[in-house]
Amino acid sequence: MLIKLHKINKQYGQGSAARRVLRDVDLAIAEGDFAAIVGTSGSGKSSLLNVIGGLDRDFTGEAEVVGQSLRGLSDRALSMLRNRSIGFIFQQFNLLEHLSCGENVALPAVFSKWDKAKVKRRVDDVLERVGLADRRDHLAGRLSGGQKQRVAIARALFHSPTLLLCDEPTGNLDTRTGRAVIELFQQLNDEGITLLIVTHEARVSDAARRVLRIEDGSLSEDPAPQVGSGGSDA
């Protein structure tokens, strides 16, 4: 299993102000899976993604990602795991707008030891992969929403991760651009990359092979994916 969660619990705040956002979550995602976690706003889906991505360590339970127990990892080892094996894609794209597309894509290389030529080659490769080879030297702040998200995907793909974690990746995109991004995800999955997408959009979850539903912090799995149902939000 690429992701194995056992009895994950998480709460915000303490005492009477405590709010439990994850309740005894168990989850297993195999390598090559394409899973969508759906749920309403505040249901805990982003919190779950943060736990899986090692962005949030303030939880109880057992979490194993890409063969490594997140509890036992040092900050340095966890950072290396995020750098080498996990790619993140965010709803807000999170690009550094004062940098060029190429520089944004190469951001993970700041924390690895690749040489300059290898970084340049890889930047060209991934930008080509997302169809933005001609935008390498353009400032990220001047791109359209769809282009920004494709640059963010290229950045996530930079170190050829085994796992892509996407938090509402089409939330800020129009229908046509969103569809193109979903198609790109499907292609990446076909190439063997495991995808876990948090979304509240049915068009995204429809593309997934597995749909997991989260409600008040509890996770359950739909019996079968609703392929092609499209349309309304989950």
């Binding site: 962005l55 340095r76 750098n83 550094l96 700041v110 924390f111």
Partner: peptide, 16 residues
């Protein structure tokens, strides 16, 4: 803050 969060997400350690 969010930029620091992004750097952490793409592999920056606390020391970085």
């Amino acid at each position: 803050r969010w930029e620091i969060g992004l750097l952490r997400a793409v592999g920056a350690s606390r020391a970085h």
